[in-house]
Write a protein that binds this DNA or RNA. Structure first.
Lengths: 270, 270
DNA sequence: ACGCGCGTCCCATCATGTGAGAACCTAGGA
DNA sequence: TCCTAGGTTCTCACATGATGGGACGCGCGT
């Protein structure tokens, strides 16, 4: 096969193809027909058809009224089982709600995975423009407050391991573009106690984040507050950060974290 | 292969096996080791290993610190893409929030799939015992208020098509057990305008639901309010139903539904 | 030390999935 | 009306790709 198949050594053609189908359907805004799928993936019609049928049997895809294919709800089921195992999300929700009530801005809960952050929950204030983020979506670490918050408080060796894998894509003019700059920023984050994303991911969007710690006092996630730069002003940052810290302390303690004794320096010390 | 492979005509062994692996990991509370997976699925160690590696490459599974496997976050991503296509959930959230504030009980948003309902969102009142339901989980139609709400207002032919596939599992002593009883109940639901589940799914749990209609005035989902029977009393039902109706009208209109003209009888008429 | 369970890896074998083709259907456009 | 495009369902010969036996090495408990 002339398949792109990068470095991954183990291969099961059928699986790669099946996931390619799911990927395709996931990317596409609109449901796709058999022919489109076959063409996009360079599969023979009959091959693509077989895959689609099997996927449908497993309810990984389903058909719309006009016979086109889209992702199936089984995936939704799986997805929820997947995060259930970190039951962070359920525990965090009430705290996030309070945070949103206090700040009147959108709050996100995100996990670190490889060199990206994945948003696992989002709470929006009642009256606010809908933010574009999608639960389940991901962004690079280097241009998000949550990414920086987690990275800053990870043990140095794990942090640099991740740093090595960052590709420093440029999202806006302010996006951090070099490893050195990022390291400096992380140091700043540590001193300040919270991470800031000042329009580094998206013009006009400012975010501030603090890590959630587990029983080992290691960051497992982060919570951020995001809003338009004109509302989330530099003056307000400390206030918001305070709310954030309280929120995150609550979540962390729900997760089994015990505050450090006197003198110990951790992400959540006052 | 002596694989259980039921009636499904199209087959791709590798895919069936891969999904069996995911299923297994999804069912299991705790991460599993290679040997456990191989044993449970009657696969050769090396076969299971290959699958796991490929799945890991696709981030459909991931490994814990001690090398065991669990579902990966990619599934979470896929799952969220899957429901995104019905963007019902996002639109519904604010309405559900209001509903929960008004009733002080848990609200669910559910879709119909085959002869089951899938919960796609859940909002709980701030101070309440956590309900056991999991977003993404599913239940049979015949013993849930959401199921009955949707079924009752579906066009007769689609409804009976689904009715045929109901297996009438008995969940409690009050669970509806025959097609006739269910048909009668649906008729009652239509007249009343809302569906009730009176401890038919779970002892001590009472729910009430109303369908969400789309632009074609067809039910695409349902919203329910659930709570312990001692709080959700018969007297309160009409009040709750009113809140529900208002909520669902809001969601339906957000989805492009236009209220019926005078005289027309639909699920959402006063 | 040894044995055991577990994960990893290699490789000869052949069952499996593959893709070409062809027939048939349906809906929609010219 | 015919014609085209897309989808569904066959069959079949082939070789590729998945399979599982088995070997290796590690860490652990005894």
């Amino acid at each position: 096969m002339r398949d792109a198949a990068p470095q991954g050594t183990y291969k099961v053609q059928a699986l790669d193809r099946a996931f390619a189908v799911l990927d395709l359907l996931g990317e596409s805004e609109t449901p796709l027909g058999l022919a489109q799928v076959a063409a996009s993936l360079q599969l023979h019609k009959s091959t693509a058809h077989r895959f689609l049928m099997v996927l449908e049997r497993h309810r990984m895809v389903e058909r719309t009224a006009n016979g086109k294919f889209r992702l199936g709800l089984r995936l939704f089921d799986f997805g929820n089982r997947a995060i259930e195992q970190y039951d962070l999300r359920d525990r965090a929700q009430p705290h996030l709600r309070r945070l949103v009530a206090e700040t009147e801005e959108t709050a996100h809960l995100a996990l670190l995975e490889a060199a990206r952050v994945i948003y696992i929950d989002k709470i929006e204030p009642t009256r606010s423009v809908r933010m574009i983020t999608r639960i389940g979506a991901s962004n690079p670490v280097h241009c998000t407050s949550v990414g920086k918050a987690i990275l800053a408080f990870l043990p140095p060796e794990r942090a640099s391991e991740i740093l090595k894998r960052v590709r420093f894509e440029r999202m806006t003019t302010r996006t951090i573009a070099t490893p050195e700059a990022l390291r400096a920023e992380l140091e700043k984050t540590r001193r300040r106690g919270y991470a800031v994303d000042d329009e580094e991911l998206e013009e006009g969007l400012r975010c501030i984040a603090v890590p959630v710690l587990d029983a080992q006092r290691l960051p497992v996630a982060a919570v951020s507050v995001s809003g338009p730069s004109f509302r989330v002003t530099a003056q307000k940052l400390p206030t918001i950060a305070n709310h954030l810290l309280q929120c995150v302390r609550g979540i962390s303690m729900d997760m089994g974290y015990v505050p450090a004794g006197r003198g110990a320096r951790t992400a959540l010390s006052a």
